[in-house]
Every structure is written in C-alpha cells, then in structure tokens.
Design a protein around this nucleic acid. Structure first.
Length: 219
DNA sequence: CTCCCGATAT
DNA sequence: ATATCAGGAG
C-alpha cells in the first residue's frame, strides 16, 4: 500500500472522530474564566499542570486586585506569588505572568499581540498557551492547541507516532481543516476529562472505541 | 533530560 | 506512595 493511501485513511478516521466529538460535546467551550485577552493569557499560564477549576478559584481575587497588564506589571511579586500559590509552580508562574505583562505594556501598549511569533516571546508562553489565547480571544487559528489531554488522546487514537507536542501539532494541522482546529482540541480535552483519563480510561463507555487502536474493554 | 509545585484521586 | 492536572524553561 502506498504511504499516501495510508495517510488518507488516517485523515478519514480523524474526521469521523471529530464528527462524533461534536455530537458528544456540542457546547464545549474554554473553561477558564476571564474578562479580557490579557486575563485569558494569565489564566492560561496558570493552568499549566493544574486543573482549570483550581485556576478559576484564584483568578477572581487576582483580577480584582490586578485587573490588567499594567497592574500586574507593577505588582509586588510576593503578593502575586501568594495569590497564585494554589495552582502550583507558583514562583515560576508569578514571575512569568509579571514578566509577560511587563513586556505587553512595554512593547504592545498593554494589549495582547495577535501574532503567534510575538506571543511565544513572552516568558511562560509557548505554542500551547499562544494557541489557546489566539483561538479563544481573537478567533485566530495559527495552530492546534496540544496540551496533555490532546497529546494523550491523539496518541491513543493512533493519529500520531510522535511524543513531541510540536510534532503532534504539525500532524494534526495536516489531518484537520483549519476551521476545526480549536473544535478538535476543546472537545478532546472534554473527552479526556470525562472518559479517556490518563490513569483509567473508560473504554467501555467510550463512543470512539471502535475507531481507537488502544481501546480495551476491561473484564 | 530535569526542575518547578500545590491539590486531589487512586 | 504515586500519578495527574488545558506546560514551559534551562
């Protein structure tokens, strides 16, 4: 068989999975709470290796005291650390959100730049965070968001052979039409939380099992 | 590769 | 005790 035909079959399978995910999670949306693009950026930096639910517990007070980039840029770093502490990695995260906000104030007039090449220069921001902000705040789709759920499920579904998120993103960008890139990521994340968990995936309850080479029905 | 790091589930 | 959570930097 040719490599071309094999890849096309994989693409067909990805599209069928996407159709089912849309039917399963019709109202899937970003579960981080925010009022502005800058707040979304901050919340997304805080969400590294931490549930959105926990991020949403600290951001109301964080954004009440420091509602915009200028305020975060001028904040006492120890106050920021105390506010973000429950999200883990709190020293790095406090330093990164302040560093990012200082750069946003100094170079972009306090507004989030809308180009991924500029966003990923901000401290604590790589492609995953940049894709989340661009897609949700501006409806700009420069790439596919690849977080821990998208990585795990895409691997289990046999849609990539890679473990590097950058290479996984490149595979997904070729498999899926651009207008569905964010549909794909947000729904895989919902499915990863509800069914295809890292530890004990509920394959017996998974409506993608017949399309999944990793599916196992436990006895 | 390691480190950053708290909260929760198993 | 160990693994995991919308990762990123050195």
């Amino acid at each position: 068989m040719s490599i071309t035909r094999k890849w096309s079959a994989k693409q067909q399978r990805a599209l069928e999975i996407l159709i089912r995910l849309k039917r399963l999670y019709p109202d899937a949306h970003c579960t981080l709470n925010y009022d502005t693009p800058v707040q979304l950026l901050v919340a997304t930096i805080l969400s590294a290796q931490c549930t959105d639910e926990r991020v949403n517990q600290v951001t109301p007070e964080l954004f009440r005291q420091f509602p915009n980039a200028r305020a975060i840029a001028q904040a006492d770093i120890e106050v920021l650390e105390a506010l973000v502490r429950p999200t883990g990695f709190y020293r790095n995260k406090a330093k990164n959100i302040q560093g990012a906000c200082r750069m946003i104030v100094a170079e972009f007039g306090g507004q989030i730049p809308r180009r991924i090449e500029l966003l990923i220069k901000l401290p604590g921001v790589a492609r995953k965070t940049a894709n989340v902000v661009l897609a949700n705040a501006f409806d700009i789709h420069e790439g596919v968001t690849v977080d821990t759920h998208v990585k795990r499920l895409t691997q289990r579904l046999g849609l990539t052979e890679h473990s590097d998120p950058i290479r996984i993103e490149r595979d997904l960008m070729r498999l899926l039409p651009m207008e569905d890139w964010e549909n794909w990521s947000i729904r895989l994340i919902y499915h990863g939380r509800a069914i295809c968990q890292a530890k004990k995936p509920k394959c017996d309850a998974c409506l993608l099992a017949d399309l999944c080479p990793s599916a196992r029905i436990e006895g």
